[in-house]
Computed example of a mutant assay.
Amino acid sequence: MTDALRLVDITEDHLDAVLRVRARSFGPLPASSREQWTKDAVEFLTDGRYVGVADGDEVVAAARIWDFQQWWGGRQVPMAGIAGVVVSPEYRGRGVGSMLMRGVMQRSIERGCPLTALYPATTVIYRKLGYEFGGGRYRFSFQAADLRSLGGRGVSIRRAGPADAGRFLELVAEAHEGARASGVLGWPEAKVAEWLADDEDIFAYLADDGFVVYNWDGNNLRVDELIAHSEETARALWATVGSGSSTARTVHAYVSPNDPVHLLAQLEADKEMQVQHWMLRLLDAPAAVAARGFAPGVAVEAELQLDDAEVPGHAGRWQLSVADGAGKLTPSSGTGDVLRLGARGLAGLYAGTPLASLRASGLATGGSVRDDGALDTAFGGPAAYMLDFF
């Protein structure tokens, strides 16, 4: 590294340089996609969500910050989604990537995000900065003809449009609150309306208590999201997708590993299931705990010792209190042996990773193993998953 390296806010004048770095990181951007890429980039840089590293006047690394809401335990928590992380080849292995990510994390803290998540191109750098696996994005494949036979003919379904965005979000909230979902992203109504306006590439159908969004994926179909609050609606929506079986043999579906479709479909999903792991990090542990939902009916009092080189405010001893589905993390003056977690271990616990796994990997130490079950229950629930890639 040189003394000239510094963090910068990406501006429109930097975008040509960022594109050059991107081409060296992910391959050239097709000419047909450049206009949309530039349009998207401007949305991020206008409010300080595009951070870079410059050597003198030249941008050599950059990353975008998404403002997300992420469901945890059935409640939404503000989360900074980090995307488009690129570093010019001649600057790799010289600490530029870490410098960039520290700038991104600080900007995320300034924006009031207690969590940050990303899909890693490599886990090494992110683990050094305190990220750990939080969950997966799962794609299952079903035979279209099998889905077509699921029935639900008595359910009224209509084509959805931009005006239905609010209803879509209501159905999503009801589903995720009831299931105490974790990991799923929440989108603003304006963005959902924008997607629903694209009725050439996106097929969206709405019932009284559910909806489906799907499209073509080559010669097959792909379900991006399906919410149903009753068996009959679930059958009807899956059968609607499966009605394309005369031209599409397979339906790829982004769903939870616990989605009811696994119980409704007569035939097992293709064994070639795909999973993309995403990583999580806590930036403000007390705020992240306060915003998250916890298992109802569980009461836990536990002492934690946190170690975090990147967020000094985390370091120290804390009292975790969980009751009535809510949690609180407050500084503690206690003494004696205590459960110790670094940033990676804390991320894993928050995401519901069993403490036995965290202990076996060295990410949790100390304290009494006999107390682990209560913490596992408090943070546990359905597997954390995402439907979206960013």
Rank of each mutant, 00 (worst) to 15 (best):
S149G: 12
G112A: 13
G136S: 13
R111S: 13
E303C: 03
A4Y: 03
H229P: 08
T330Y: 00
V85S: 07
N215I: 00
V155D: 11
A121Q: 07
R158I: 00
G166I: 02
L304T: 06
E310N: 11
T46K: 15
N258Y: 05
S25C: 15
V96K: 11
P28E: 15
R249S: 08
A117P: 00
H14V: 08
V104M: 14
L100P: 11
G334F: 05
D376R: 10
E272S: 05
F140I: 08
L375W: 09
V172K: 12
F211R: 04
S98F: 01
A374H: 06
D388R: 02
I202V: 15
L329Q: 08
T240A: 07
S108H: 11
A41V: 02
G130S: 05
A295G: 07
A31W: 00
L264S: 06
L150A: 02
H277S: 12
A347W: 11
E110W: 04
P89H: 12
G345S: 08
T123F: 01
M273C: 09
R139N: 03
D201G: 05
L5D: 01
D146E: 09
C113P: 00
R107N: 08
T38I: 15
R359G: 13
W238D: 09
E43G: 12
G81T: 14
N215Q: 09
P382R: 14
G293H: 06
D13I: 00
E90T: 08
G348V: 02
S141N: 08
A160C: 04
P257H: 08
Y91Q: 13
E132N: 04
I82S: 09
A17T: 05
A41I: 09
L280A: 03
A23T: 05
L387M: 10
V338N: 04
T330R: 09
S182P: 10
L355F: 02
E174L: 14
A323R: 15
R180L: 13
R137L: 14
R102D: 03
F211A: 03
A378F: 08
M279D: 06
G154W: 08
G380K: 14
A207W: 10
M101H: 06
D3L: 05
F389H: 15
G74Q: 09
G97V: 02
A315F: 00
F133T: 14
Y205C: 00
Q319E: 13
F133Y: 10
Y214Q: 04
